[in-house]
Write a protein that binds this DNA or RNA. Structure first.
Lengths: 342, 342
DNA sequence: TTGAAAGCGCTAACAG
DNA sequence: CTGTTAGCGCTTTCAA
């Protein structure tokens, strides 16, 4: 195993000072063309690479951003991650990534750990634990210590920083309106994420759509399920008793599960029951019948978040904090009826 | 924005030397309890954190490993990533991650970029591009420069290093055998990844199972599809002409697509047609009928890979290179028949 | 055109 | 018990 080659090594070879080597490799005009040429040639041949740790120490910049995500198996976050990775890599930034598994403690720990000089800034989507606990001091601390933060998707008003959010309310509003327009009367709302900011916004969008279409809001149609609940057991009674003819699902999984339950009960989709679900992963596309979804454009969200952070890091002046809103798209598939054209 | 606090600051406050502060915070016995106490108290109060960049420079260790993955939207890789993240985090290692998008160039670039002192080692699964090109010098170079590598899943014999692989051959063998035992006669093989090492091993397993059951191998039943091919167009003629009664799909997506095609053609699953697919993501579980899969235990693979790398980094002696094989499991769902019990 | 010296934040060997 | 010094790899004055 070769020793890593340093300026010192090269200096010794040519019997010059380290400074001369440094300047040569940076193509400084202070150095004679001849010296530069031979040193550059040698460095290239030896595959010299400046030690980025030393540079980080010197510049107090690491060109590295921390990405903190609740769960990478969620397709929205996975896509967002891809978007961030792309933008970061295009701008010469590295990514240190971390998965909180929805845990407040893990989120705090990892941020504390990374506030040690390894990073120039953070991109984070809050864990469920944090949104429940409503304690954001680990974030405000980071900002106070000069580490800029960009929050995305799961954000909070209580931290002032750049944000990228999905227009969840619009998404739910459009989906609900579409269901109404296609003739649905009793639209149930199904949610595994009533704990989350995004869950609340989606709920608002649903209610607003009903109101705007003069449909009374029936709170008993709003079904919160826990991840471990027996899905069939909670859902089936509702469908029957309430004469439900459409389901708006606020998360990816419950839409899929709902479809399965509904099919098993012998309903036809979309004739007897329409379904729309949040998050446009592979799942709803490949299921039969395929499920109409609200796309949150994860890649775009991620790319925007990374770009915002990098802009701030590259800028010297303090710019104002911005919140960028990404619009959703309704992707119509087999689980919803066509709008009746008049 | 506060200046980051350093040993120097603290030293000035108490009018002692930097060394004294350093020793105090490391609880050295050289320092009087009194001095230690007051300095420790102050450091804690001020939330002092040692600058890890400085430490990295000093120790020539960064406690950071690079993870290079072809595609995080693939559920096997996502799970492997989760496994690695967990083990790394438990052992106090950070993760710098990178997605190659199956591109050889990106893989080479990112490795060159990261061979600059930021990392202690790599975990990598080869991109498709690399497996096609069969050029591994970026890997051997890294090893020669003292950066250990652990390869997982998509590996090559041409690089000597630690490896974690899935027993792909066994997986395909067991799946094929299961199909045979449940009465299938004409088992088609469907593959989007004939370019990959794992694709080749799975093909071997399929052939071996046929041979062991005295079934003649019909090469025309082996169907290579490209990602952009019209799936129906390639598959449908085969099914009819060849009297196919089972499909073994070497990747997640094509199993799902095959099921859709088959259902559309009016076949009953599993009565007329059995399906088994590689990779046990959410998709095959939630589809109707649910699809039997070969689980590659992504989390385990990832965790093992991380552990191997960390062990090597923590060890001083050079240990031999090992290859760890993770066994697959066949997960039976609705797309396959029960084994006939005699 | 080149080099010496200082410094980024920290530790460790050695003196005092 | 505390401080001085050197050094990790690099850049950047400033002096020669």
């Amino acid at each position: 195993m070769k020793e890593r080659i340093t300026l010192k090594h090269i200096a010794k070879i040519f019997d010059v000072s380290i400074a001369t080597v440094s300047k040569s490799l940076n193509d400084s005009h202070e150095i004679s063309t001849e010296t530069k040429k031979k040193i550059q040639a040698y460095a290239k041949e030896q595959n010299y690479k400046p030690n980025s740790i030393a540079l980080s120490l010197l510049n107090k910049k690491t060109k590295t951003i921390g990405i903190i995500i609740p769960n990478i198996l969620n397709s929205f976050f996975a896509k967002a991650f891809v978007g961030m990775e792309k933008v970061a890599s295009e701008n010469g930034f590295n990514i240190i990534s971390c998965i909180t598994n929805e845990s407040y403690e893990k989120e705090v720990n990892i941020m504390e750990l990374l506030k040690n000089g390894t990073l120039d800034g953070f991109i984070i989507s809050l864990s469920e634990g944090t949104q429940v606990k409503q304690d954001f001091s680990h974030l405000t601390n980071a900002i106070n210590e000069g580490l800029p933060i960009v929050m995305f998707d799961r954000v909070t008003d209580q931290v002032e920083c750049d944000k990228v959010i999905v227009d969840d309310m619009e998404g739910a509003y459009n989906a609900t309106s579409h269901l109404i327009r296609t003739g649905c009367k009793n639209i149930a709302l199904l949610s595994e994420l009533y704990n989350l900011s995004v869950g609340k916004l989606r709920l608002e969008g649903y209610k607003k759509a009903l109101r705007d279409h003069n449909i009374e809001i029936d709170e008993s149609l709003i079904i919160n399920v826990n991840k471990n609940d027996d899905f069939d057991a909670t859902l089936i009674p509702f469908i029957k008793d309430k004469n439900i003819d459409a389901i708006l699902s606020l998360d990816e999984n419950s839409a899929i599960k709902a479809e399965k339950t509904v099919l098993n009960k012998g309903y036809n989709i979309p004739e007897d029951m329409s379904i729309i679900g949040f998050t446009n992963g592979k799942l709803p596309r490949f299921v039969t019948p395929s499920i109409s979804t609200i796309s949150q454009h994860g890649r775009v969200v991620g790319a925007e978040a990374a770009q915002m952070l990098i802009n701030r890091l590259n800028d010297d002046e303090d710019r104002e904090y911005k919140t960028k809103v990404i619009n959703t798209s309704l992707i119509q598939r087999e689980s919803t009826k066509e709008t009746v054209s008049n």
